Amino acid sequence: MKVIAVGMNYAAHNKELDHTLELAEPTIFMKSDSSLLKDGKPFFIPDFSEEIHYETEIVVRIDRLGKNIAERFAHRYYNEVTVGIDFTARDLQRKLRSQGLPWEISKAFDNSAVTGTFMPLEQLGKVDNLSFHLDINGQKVQEGNTGDMLFSVDKIVAYVSRFFTLKIGDLIYTGTPVGVGPVHIDDHLQGYIGQHKLLDFFVR
């Protein structure tokens, strides 16, 4: 299975990190299968970074084999979503970007892709109008709505399928809104879509 992620998909977040606000196509990067962290297991801060940031995202699970999918048919290829965390070694990412080097190791390291419990969209609402947020230690630190994405879920699915065959079980992290920040040992992270708590784990 593949873990596909979309960068810079919310304008306010792009401004927050001094990225461009003008994008013609989705920005795609990959995480490895060992990036996955699920079932409420703790996230251990790695020893190669002093600045691990949370990035809260809606995660879509592909449930049908597809290649070169037309956008108008993209909705047929998924029916469950959850909230997840794209952990980023921000200090390492900045260093690599400043040198013009690839920055996968700052994004795709082990356990950097946290996933919550998947729920059918029929229980949550339309995929293009999902409100989600992250609480740390009981305080809301980040929130967003998929209606604010620069590229919709269907556009992302169609675009990605031009380059990669989508297979059952593949995950797509759809981008993070404004409000990213650092995590620390003993932080308690809880992620929600609407009032549904789908993510609950600790940082160690």
Rank of each mutant, 00 (worst) to 15 (best):
P42S: 02
P42L: 00
P42Y: 00
F43E: 00
F43K: 04
F43M: 04
F43L: 07
F44Q: 12
F44P: 03
I45D: 02
I45E: 02
I45F: 09
I45R: 06
P46M: 11
P46R: 03
P46G: 11
P46K: 01
P46T: 09
P46D: 11
D47P: 01
D47V: 03
D47A: 12
F48L: 13
F48S: 12
F48N: 09
F48T: 12
S49T: 13
S49E: 08
S49A: 14
S49I: 08
E50K: 15
E50D: 15
E50R: 14
E50I: 14
E51K: 15
E51N: 14
E51G: 07
I52F: 13
I52R: 06
I52Y: 11
H53D: 13
H53E: 03
Y54E: 10
Y54S: 12
Y54C: 10
Y54V: 12
Y54W: 14
E55H: 07
T56R: 03
T56K: 03
E57A: 06
E57D: 05
E57G: 05
E57I: 12
E57R: 06
I58K: 05
I58W: 02
I58R: 03
I58N: 04
I58Y: 01
V59L: 05
V59E: 02
V59D: 05
V60K: 06
V60I: 15
V60D: 06
V60A: 09
V60H: 04
V60N: 09
V60W: 02
V60Y: 06
R61H: 01
R61Q: 14
R61I: 14
I62T: 10
I62R: 07
I62E: 03
I62Q: 07
I62Y: 03
I62A: 07
I62K: 06
I62D: 09
D63A: 04
D63Y: 02
D63N: 15
D63I: 10
R64E: 11
R64T: 07
R64Q: 12
L65Y: 01
G66W: 00
G66T: 01
G66K: 04
G66P: 02
G66I: 00
G66D: 02
K67F: 13
K67P: 08
K67E: 12
K67R: 15
K67D: 06
N68R: 12
N68V: 02
N68A: 11
N68I: 00
I69P: 08
I69F: 10
I69L: 10
A70S: 07
E71A: 14
E71S: 14
R72W: 04
R72G: 00
R72V: 13
R72C: 04
R72S: 13
F73E: 13
F73Y: 14
F73H: 13
A74H: 05
A74W: 01
A74R: 03
H75T: 10
R76P: 00
R76C: 08
R76I: 05
R76N: 13
Y77G: 11
Y77M: 08
Y77H: 11
Y77W: 06
Y77A: 09
